[in-house]
Computed example of a mutant assay.
Amino acid sequence: MTLEDWIAVPKDDGHGLELAEGVLIVTPQPSQRHEQAVLRLAAQLEPQLPITWGTLRRAELVVDSGPVPTVRLPDLLVGTEAGIEDNLPRWSPEHVCLVAEIMSEGTRRTDRVTKLDEYAEAGVENYWLIDMDDPMSLRAFRLMADRYENLGRQTGRIALPLLNSSVTIDLPALTGRRTAGQAG
């Protein structure tokens, strides 16, 4: 498929549609636990971001617009507020500072290997890979030149570099029960 062919494909909210080197990829609907983790990650990140950046769930990211294009649908991306206000139908890497993927049984290898290389080649500054197996962990990657530097696997409540600052993520809270002190 070309990028124009991709744009013409009707999107189905029940499944994840991606384009990998011109080939349509269909992934099953994420589990409820997976979706909860994505929403809670966004809720933790959003108030810590500068006002010029915001979080988006499952937004199209054009990793390669060439003759055999690749368009990914990351679980979460942090993009420019201007792009959000413009309601971009798909994002280019220069307007994105973070992509986060929460690994599922059917996506582990793609998230750990393929997307790691694709996002680095595209110039996405930060890539977070979250594993929901107990204990929940996050492996952070930061772009150095044209390759990702592995910042290590972390668990618990962690601080990570992002946008010339630091953000704190409480990993157990992404899927754990809410406590009496939480809103709701």
Results as ranks from 00 to 15, higher is better:
residue 23 V to P: 11
residue 34 H to M: 15
residue 53 W to P: 00
residue 36 Q to T: 11
residue 184 G to Y: 08
residue 64 D to N: 11
residue 93 P to C: 14
residue 55 T to D: 14
residue 96 V to M: 05
residue 72 R to A: 12
residue 172 P to M: 01
residue 70 T to R: 13
residue 7 I to E: 08
residue 11 K to S: 13
residue 8 A to P: 14
residue 153 R to G: 08
residue 146 D to Q: 03
residue 143 L to T: 00
residue 137 S to E: 09
residue 58 R to S: 06
residue 35 E to R: 15
residue 78 V to L: 00
residue 176 G to C: 14
residue 40 R to G: 14
residue 157 R to E: 01
residue 86 D to N: 06
residue 110 T to H: 12
residue 97 C to F: 00
residue 154 Q to T: 04
residue 21 E to T: 02
residue 115 K to G: 12
residue 94 E to A: 11
residue 123 G to H: 11
residue 18 E to W: 04
residue 179 T to E: 15
residue 182 Q to D: 09
residue 13 D to F: 06
residue 97 C to S: 09
residue 28 P to V: 08
residue 174 L to P: 03
residue 175 T to Y: 09
residue 97 C to L: 05
residue 68 V to A: 12
residue 150 N to E: 11
residue 184 G to I: 08
residue 32 Q to I: 14
residue 184 G to C: 01
residue 28 P to G: 14
residue 95 H to R: 11
residue 127 Y to C: 09
residue 62 V to D: 11
residue 118 E to F: 05
residue 142 R to P: 03
residue 161 P to R: 09
residue 38 V to I: 10
residue 32 Q to H: 04
residue 19 L to W: 11
residue 164 N to H: 10
residue 132 M to Q: 13
residue 18 E to S: 09
residue 123 G to D: 13
residue 103 M to F: 13
residue 103 M to W: 13
residue 5 D to V: 02
residue 114 T to A: 04
residue 48 Q to F: 04
residue 138 L to H: 08
residue 46 E to S: 02
residue 123 G to C: 08
residue 137 S to K: 02
residue 86 D to R: 02
residue 143 L to V: 00
residue 139 R to P: 07
residue 175 T to F: 11
residue 55 T to F: 01
residue 91 W to R: 15
residue 92 S to T: 09
residue 167 V to A: 06
residue 132 M to N: 15
residue 123 G to N: 13
residue 183 A to K: 10
